Amino acid sequence: PQECLLLEPGLNEIMANSLDYNERLWAWESWRSEVGKQLRPLYEEYVVLKNEMARANHYEDYGDYWRGDYEVNGVDGYDYSRGQLIEDVEHTFEEIKPLYEHLHAYVRAKLMNAYPSYISPIGCLPAHLLGDMWGRFWTNLYSLTVPFGQKPNIDVTDAMVDQAWDAQRIFKEAEKFFVSVGLPNMTQGFWENSMLTDPGNVQKAVCHPTAWDLGKGDFRILMCTKVTMDDFLTAHHEMGHIQYDMAYAAQPFLLRNGANEGFHEAVGEIMSLSAATPKHLKSIGLLSPDFQEDNETEINFLLKQALTIVGTLPFTYMLEKWRWMVFKGEIPKDQWMKKWWEMKREIVGVVEPVPHDETYCDPASLFHVSNDYSFIRYYTRTLYQFQFQEALCQAAKHEGPLHKCDISNSTEAGQKLFNMLRLGKSEPWTLALENVVGAKNMNVRPLLNYFEPLFTWLKDQNKNSFVGWSTDWSPYADQSIKVRISLKSALGDKAYEWNDNEMYLFRSSVAY
C-alpha cells in the first residue's frame, strides 16, 4: 500500500478484514516500526519515573501501586492483599488454560486453511493473523472459523447495514437495554456533547472508545462508531461505564469510582452478554423472526463469544505479567523485547512474524500501555462479568443454560445491579461482590459453565490435532529472506536491522 494510513481508520481495517498475509505483515510491522521505536526511549523513562512515584508513596514499584486498587484492609472477613491478586490471577488462569488451548488448536487448523504454508500444525499462531493489530481480540476471525457456515449468520453486521443503522441508532438501542432493566436514560448533555462518529477531516481524533465523567452531571462517550456488531456491543460496554458513573455520582468525590477497576469494566460487559444472544437480537429485529436455535447455532454463537472473551485472556494476563516484571526490575532493559516474545510464545501461543530487536517497544504500540492504563482490569472484569451475569440471571428468573440468558426487561436484575453500582468505592469490593453474587472472591466457574458446550465440542473437533504449541517454530524461518527484502523496500531505514548471520545468508542466496 502506498497511501498514508492512520491506525483508525486504515490500518485497523486491514487487520480486521485482509486475507493477504503480506499486506497484514506490512501493516503490523509498519505500526510497530513507526510507533514502537519512537516510544522506546520514552517508555524507558516512564518506567523509571513511575517507579519513583510509587516508591515515594510506600509501594514496592509501580506494578505494586496498580495492584493496590484491589487492596482491602481493616474490614474483618473482607480483607484482600496485593499479593493475593497475583495468586488469584495465576490460579484462575491455570483453570482457563485447557479451554484456551483447545480454542487455540481449532483456530490454528482454520488458519492453516486460510494461509497454507504459513502455519505450523504444532506451532504458535503468527501475531499478525489474529483479527486486530495486537491479536487482543480474535472476533474478526469468526468468518474464517465459523463451525456451521450453512446456518444463518449470528454476526448481524450485514443486517445492521441493510437496515441503515447508524451510530445514533446503535447508542439508542444500548440505552433502551439499560432503561429496560430500570436504569436511567442518558442525559441530554450526553447526546449533545458526545463524539460518536469519526469527525473525519474536520479534526484529528483519538478513536479508541472511551467513556468520560467530567463532573457536575456531564457524561460523554468518545467513539468513532462503525456499523458493525462489534461496535454495537462496544456501545453497551461504554454506556455501562456511564451508568456506573451516574449511579455513584451522589457519593463524596473520592468515592466516585468503581469498587475496583475490574468492576467498572465488567458492568457494560454484562449487558453485552445479553445483547449478543440470538434471543435479544431477534427481539430488536437484527435476526429474522423465523431464526431457529439448535445445537449448531448454539456452537456458532459460543465460538463467536469465545473468540472475543476466551481468546483475549492469555493476551491480557501475559501483557500485565510482563509489565509487573519490568517494574519490579526482573527483566533487564536490554532484554525487554526478547522476554516479551518469549512470554508471548510460552503463555499465549503466539509468535512474532519477524524478529524484533531491542530498538522496538511492541507493548507500547497498544493504546492502554502508552496511555498508562493498568491492564489486569480486563482479566478480572471477565471473571466478574460471568459471576455477575449468573447472579443477575437468577434474579431475572432465567431457566436454562447461562449462555442463553438475556436480562433485558428484568427490573429485578437491574435493581440488584444498581444497588452495587451506587456504592461506588464506599464499600470494599469484596463486600460489594458478595452482595451481588454471594461470594467475595473472583471465581472462574461461571465462565467455564457458560462455555461448557463449546469446550465439549472443541475436544471432539481436536481429537486428531495437536493441542498446545511448540515454541520453537517461527513463521519467518522458511520465508525470512523474502520477508526481509520486502520489508526493507517498504520501510527503508526503519526496517529491522539484519545481523551478520542474516546478511551472510542473504549474500549466499543471491550468489547461489
Rank of each mutant, 00 (worst) to 15 (best):
R136K: 12
R136P: 03
F137Y: 09
F137S: 08
F137D: 10
F137I: 12
F137T: 07
F137E: 08
F137C: 10
T139C: 08
T139N: 10
T139Y: 06
T139P: 06
T139E: 09
T139V: 10
T139G: 11
N140V: 10
N140W: 08
N140G: 12
N140E: 09
N140T: 08
N140A: 11
N140L: 11
N140I: 05
N153M: 10
N153F: 07
N153T: 12
N153I: 09
N153D: 12
T187N: 08
T187A: 15
T187E: 15
T187M: 03
T187V: 08
T187L: 03
T187D: 08
T187F: 04
T187W: 02
Q188M: 05
Q188T: 13
Q188E: 10
Q188R: 07
Q188C: 06
Q188D: 05
Q188Y: 13
Q188K: 10
Q188S: 07
G189S: 00
G189F: 00
G189C: 00
G189R: 01
G189Q: 01
G189I: 01
G189L: 03
G189Y: 01
E192S: 06
E192W: 04
E192G: 06
E192T: 06
E192Q: 10
E192L: 09
E192M: 07
N193G: 02
N193T: 07
N193F: 15
N193W: 15
N193K: 04
V206G: 03
V206R: 07
V206S: 07
V206C: 08
V206T: 05
H208L: 07
H208C: 06
H208R: 08
H208P: 00
H208F: 10
H208W: 09
H208A: 09
H208S: 09
P209E: 07
P209R: 02
P209L: 03
P209A: 11
P209K: 05
P209I: 03
T210P: 03
T210N: 09
T210F: 06
T210Y: 07
T210H: 02
T210E: 06
T210S: 09
W212R: 04
W212H: 04
W212Y: 05
W212C: 04
W212K: 04
W212G: 03
D213K: 09
D213H: 04
D213G: 06
D213W: 02
D213C: 05
D213L: 03
D213A: 06
L214M: 14
L214H: 13
L214K: 00
L214G: 04
L214I: 04
L214S: 03
L214V: 05
L214D: 00
L214Q: 08
G215Q: 09
G215V: 04
G215R: 14
G215E: 03
G215L: 04
G215S: 14
G215Y: 14
K216R: 03
K216H: 00
K216N: 02
K216I: 00
K216L: 01
K216W: 00
G217S: 02
G217E: 01
G217F: 01
G217W: 02
G217D: 03
G217R: 00
G217L: 01
D218Q: 00
D218G: 00
D218L: 01
D218M: 01
D218T: 02
D218S: 00
D218W: 00
D218H: 00
D218C: 00
F219C: 03
F219V: 04
F219T: 01
F219D: 02
F219W: 03
F219Y: 06
F219S: 03
R220I: 00
R220F: 00
R220K: 03
R220V: 00
R220W: 02
M229Q: 08
M229G: 09
M229E: 05
M229N: 02
D230A: 10
D230N: 13
D230H: 06
D230Y: 09
D230S: 12
D230Q: 10
D230K: 09
D230T: 12
L233H: 06
L233T: 05
L233D: 04
L233N: 07
L233V: 07
L233M: 10
L233R: 07
L233F: 11
T234M: 09
T234V: 10
T234N: 07
T234R: 10
T234K: 08
T234C: 11
H237F: 05
H237T: 11
H237S: 12
H241E: 14
H241G: 11
H241W: 08
H241C: 14
D245G: 07
D245L: 05
D245S: 13
D245P: 03
D245R: 04
D245Q: 14
D245A: 12
D245T: 12
D245F: 13
D245K: 04
M246G: 03
M246F: 05
M246Y: 03
M246E: 11
M246D: 03
M246K: 05
A249W: 02
A249H: 01
A249Y: 03
A249S: 06
A249I: 15
A250C: 14
A250M: 09
A250L: 07
A250W: 14
A250E: 12
A250P: 12
A250Y: 14
A250D: 09
Q251L: 04
Q251S: 04
Q251C: 12
Q251F: 01
Q251V: 06
Q251E: 03
Q251K: 04
Q251T: 07
Q251R: 05
Q251A: 06
P252A: 10
P252S: 10
P252K: 04
P252N: 12
P252G: 06
P252T: 07
F253Q: 03
F253C: 03
F253R: 03
F253E: 01
F253S: 04
F253Y: 04
R256F: 01
R256C: 09
R256T: 08
R256S: 08
R256K: 15
R256Q: 10
R256Y: 01
R256G: 08
R256P: 01
N257P: 02
N257Q: 09
E261A: 06
E261F: 09
E261R: 10
E261H: 05
E261K: 12
H264C: 06
H264S: 14
H264A: 08
H264I: 09
H264L: 05
H264V: 07
H264N: 12
E265S: 10
E265A: 12
E265I: 06
E265K: 12
E265L: 08
E269P: 11
E269M: 09
E269F: 07
E269A: 14
E269K: 11
E269R: 08
E269Y: 09
E269H: 08
E269V: 08
S272D: 08
S272Q: 10
S272W: 09
S272V: 10
S272E: 09
F301K: 09
F301A: 08
F301R: 09
F301Y: 12
F301N: 13
F301T: 07
F301H: 09
K304P: 02
K304A: 12
K304T: 11
K304Q: 13
K304E: 09
K304D: 08
K304M: 12
Q305G: 09
Q305P: 03
Q305M: 05
Q305N: 05
Q305E: 11
Q305H: 09
T308R: 12
T308P: 09
T308Y: 09
T308L: 08
T308C: 07
T308F: 11
T308K: 11
I309V: 08
I309D: 07
I309N: 08
I309S: 10
I309F: 12
I309K: 08
F367T: 10
F367D: 08
F367Q: 12
F367S: 09
F367N: 11
F367I: 07
F367K: 12
F367C: 06
F367H: 12
H368P: 11
H368E: 11
H368A: 12
H368Q: 12
D372Y: 04
D372A: 06
D372T: 06
Y373D: 10
Y373S: 08
Y373L: 13
Y373G: 10
Y373F: 11
Y373E: 09
S374W: 05
S374E: 13
S374N: 13
S374M: 09
S374A: 10
S374D: 14
F375W: 12
F375H: 05
R377W: 08
R377M: 08
R377V: 09
R377S: 08
R377E: 13
R377N: 09
R377T: 10
Y378R: 09
Y378P: 10
Y378A: 08
Y378F: 12
Y378M: 13
Y378G: 06
R381I: 04
R381F: 05
R381Q: 08
